[in-house]
Design a protein around this nucleic acid. Structure first.
Lengths: 252, 252
DNA sequence: GGCGCATTAATTATGCAAAAATCTTGACGG
DNA sequence: CCGTCAAGATTTTTGCATAATTAATGCGCC
């Protein structure tokens, strides 16, 4: 179901341990004991070791002889990995991370739309139109709408015909699903359709500036809706106000 | 040495097989035979299996009973993974990929600088100053300059204090190293220092627009230098002219 | 006689346990 | 202070058993 071979026992163990690291059950610096895991999860050493190897490749853990396996600092995690973004969503919604997600989307997607307006093929437009059609359907259920929404944004990035830009869909997907989890009422997005249509029209017309502006407006609207639903700070581009780290020495 | 536990035999095998997939030795759709690999590389079943498991988590391969292990289509690869970007550089320089890399950098870095101008701390500025100082040293050798250059851009992204933005350093690093591999003459970047200094000054002054503009100008200069060194098409933002895919139906 | 379907069988990945080899680390002695 | 050595743990190896999936085969049906 997932991106890779998430089948079988192995994938389940990887997800379990990875999830525990992401949600803080295993904190950075803490050592992970493979034998405890194999007893608790009732699997063999091999499976645990393979799982830890995969997690090591994602920067989550590191194993050194005589010292054991320990969780690496969060700054070393490959947060752009699709699995990590998925596991991150399993825990409690982190407002800070949500804001980061939205911020990156606000950078990536308008730029992607700008490129897409120049490079889109007829197939790209067809994909976007299909997604929009589902999005506009009156009697569509929530999950179908979410998937169509995701398909639309995916198609938009793909239309930029930049391989790396296309891979940034992981960020878009994470942001989209996170938002849907918060508002989680499937039927109050009738006003999202015109905004999406504006994006499609600008891209189809080959208008880079218009496409970028349309996406910005779309994200802005989604942001206000989100802030309204979450009841947090108001305003479309509201941030965690002020210094994000300690000791902001900005002088204006 | 690398991002994760690249130590030991296992990491070597992962890199070997992964490199072969990225350079086309193992083409998408082709089946990979674990027993042949364990004979050829002279390792046990377990090591090959663990390596393939890691590669599966990066979307490079998929294993299914009765069908064997086969290379997945390139569109499924997690190209934002640090390892994959590194392995990609091992092969012949791909102009298309290089252009994609530069294009994404041109989107990410100015936006990052814009945020950094607002949120940078004194520690961020100190890190950038240190890197710039090394960059400006008269007698520094090539590798030291490259590392300092990379440190500067890393510090810039970190100063945006957006966790995901910071992770996009993998793209910046790939682009930077790829460029350095092409021009590969260590001592013709004296003119890169002023451009970097302009970025630092704008960020320190808390000038978002100025910081973004400075980065754009920096990337533009690097792009012209690259085009000049590679002898390809001229112009700073030169692209592969026209439709990137088949059947561009743009009417605008 | 050709076609569709369920059953069977073969092939492959997957999981497990135990033992050997290799390396790191810390201590001891020169 | 440095080199050697020993202890400990991890990594690696080996062999085998199990499970899952696909392809083929045989049957009944149109």
């Amino acid at each position: 179901m997932a991106a890779y071979s998430g089948r079988g026992l192995h994938g389940h163990i990887v997800e379990t341990i990875g999830g525990r690291i992401l949600d803080g059950t295993y904190a950075p610096g803490q050592t992970v004991h493979p034998d405890e895991l194999e007893r608790e999860l009732d699997v063999s050493k091999t499976v645990v070791r393979e799982a830890l190897r995969v997690l090591a490749s994602k920067g989550l853990v590191d194993s050194r002889p005589k010292r054991g396996t320990f969780v690496r600092p969060r700054s070393e995690w490959s947060l752009l990995d699709a699995s990590l973004l998925r596991w991150q969503r399993r825990g409690a919604p982190d407002r800070r991370f949500l804001a980061d997600l939205a911020e990156v989307r606000a950078i990536i997607e308008p730029a992607g739309a700008r490129l897409a307006a120049t490079r889109r093929t007829e197939a790209d437009l067809a994909a976007m139109r299909e997604a929009l059609a589902v999005l506009a359907e009156p009697g569509a259920d929530a999950s179908a709408v979410i998937e169509a929404d995701l398909r639309f944004h995916r198609a938009l990035l793909a239309a930029a015909h930049n391989e790396l830009m296309g891979r940034l869909e992981v960020v878009v997907e994470a942001g989209l699903r996170e938002r849907d989890r918060i508002v989680h009422s499937g039927e109050r997005w009738p006003d999202a359709v015109p905004a999406h249509r504006a994006v499609l029209d600008a891209v189809a017309a080959g208008d880079p500036a218009g496409a970028a502006a349309a996406v910005e407006s779309l994200l802005e609207q989604a942001s206000t809706d989100l802030a309204h639903a979450a009841g947090g700070e108001a305003g479309p581009h509201a941030r965690n106000s002020g210094a994000r780290n300690s000791g902001d020495s900005a002088a204006g």
